[in-house]
């Protein structure tokens, strides 16, 4: 079975392709219940919505 382990190669990003930054396993919320209410166990992926029209 081929090894598909991904290795981030920063210098090699040719044109005409979209690149999402590769997530590395860093922090996980200590309190799982808090993570559950938020919707992810990874704090770096927590992007809440705070917009208001104010008109």
């Amino acid at each position: 079975m081929q090894d598909f382990t991904y290795v981030e190669k920063k210098e090699e990003r040719p044109l005409a392709m979209a690149y999402v930054k590769w997530q590395k396993f860093d922090k996980v919320y200590d309190e799982l219940e808090k993570a559950f209410r938020i919707g992810t166990i990874f704090p770096e992926l927590n992007k809440p919505f705070t917009g208001r029209r104010c008109v």
């Binding site: 590769w22 938020i38 992810t40």
Partner: peptide, 27 residues
């Protein structure tokens, strides 16, 4: 709010799948 956050996480995963794919193709 939970459902909205899941969409953001899925976006990250699909983005990673695209990186894996690009990595396997002729650059």
């Amino acid at each position: 709010k939970f459902l909205r956050e899941r969409e953001i996480v899925h976006y990250q995963r699909f983005g990673e799948a695209l990186r894996l794919t690009a990595d396997r193709l002729n650059e």
